[in-house]
């Protein structure tokens, strides 16, 4: 597929500290890419570089093949950026804020009306259009910022915490809209909500200390790094002898115990039956089997304790 965003050895320093270090990757047109990582790992800085809000200290960023630094005016018209913090004009209404952006990008009144109707209907924003942005909740402001970012019909949408401050209903509406526009626009976003990322991505970039640690669809990441299941068995009594017996089962990975609960990982569910078989004469109170997700993937990477 054709690249929408391309980074070539991009680096960013702030106060002589390396925030991004020689990043090289591409984003296909029309794809939905999630960026995830611990706080201060450089995710938001990366979005700022992609949006043109900040310049890289070295390397190049291309949008549709155009160098963002050299072809600034052209690339900016292609980008819609929604920052994390509310940056609406406090003394304008929600609608005026959106229309101001439309005017800045020379969008005709007719198109502006159509887009406001389409996006505000989708996000249930209509009742708030005539209210000052200062006086509406953070979630409404965030939805207004999303409409503002879409009003000039950008090809690339860059979102920093797209559902920040939102209630459950707004989160659902926002993701419905983002999934709808994905395909015609490339969407790249940062989020700390792992369930949302699990449900909405073509690709996940796992970030740590300014580098990409992992890159791919969640299924592929889990398959290539840790295709495990997590098990928990609570015994009536888990003594040292039993714990030693269970942890020495060859297929059991990374065992540990907490009170009378035995935790372990295994590549397949059959490991569970090996353990059950070994502990068949013990009284068990509770069982739990879980397929690992993004949270476990990140925990294993960032806690510095690989499963193996």
């Amino acid at each position: 597929m054709e690249a929408s965003i391309t980074l070539k050895k991009v680096g960013k320093l702030i106060d002589n500290k390396t925030i991004l270090a020689g990043l090289t990757f591409g984003v296909e047109r029309g794809s939905l890419v999630a960026i995830v990582g611990v706080n201060d790992s450089g995710k938001s800085i990366l979005l700022k570089l992609l949006s043109g809000y900040e310049n890289p200290d070295y390397g190049q960023v291309f949008i549709h093949g155009l160098d963002i630094k050299k072809r600034r005016t052209e690339t900016r018209a292609l980008i819609g950026y929604v920052p994390y913090e509310n940056d609406l004009d406090p003394w304008l209404t929600i609608e005026q804020n959106i229309r101001f952006n439309a005017n800045l990008y020379s969008v005709s009144n007719k198109l502006c009306d159509e887009r406001i109707k389409e996006y505000c209907d989708a996000l249930h924003l209509n009742p708030y259009l005539n209210q000052y942005s200062l006086k509406v909740s953070g979630g409404i402001q965030k939805k207004a910022m999303l409409v503002r970012g879409l009003i000039h019909n950008p090809d690339v949408l860059i979102l920093d915490e797209p559902t920040g401050y939102m209630d459950a209903e707004s989160i659902r509406l926002t993701w419905d809209l983002i999934k709808k526009i994905k395909g015609e626009k490339s969407v790249i976003y940062v989020s700390n909500s792992l369930p949302e990322i699990e449900n909405a991505h073509d690709r996940i970039l796992v970030f740590d200390e300014g580098r990409i640690l992992m890159d791919g669809h969640l299924d592929n990441l889990l398959k290539s790094t840790m295709d495990y299941h997590q098990f928990q068995i609570e015994f009536k009594s888990l003594d040292d002898e039993l714990y030693k017996l269970l942890k020495n089962i060859p297929t059991v990975v990374s065992p540990n115990r907490l009170d009378n609960t035995f935790h372990f990982y295994g590549r397949t569910r059959t490991v569970f039956f090996d353990v059950i078989k070994a502990a068949s004469n013990q009284l068990m109170i509770d069982l739990n089997v879980k397929k690992l997700g993004l949270r476990d993937l990140l925990d294993s990477e960032f806690a510095g304790r690989g499963l193996e």
Binding site: G52, R72, T73, N97
Partner: peptide
């Protein structure tokens, strides 16, 4: 106050 100026600065103008 990190309000609309950043958004304006991202518009396609010098």
């Amino acid at each position: 106050h990190k309000k609309v100026l950043i958004n304006i600065a991202l518009a396609p103008y010098s």
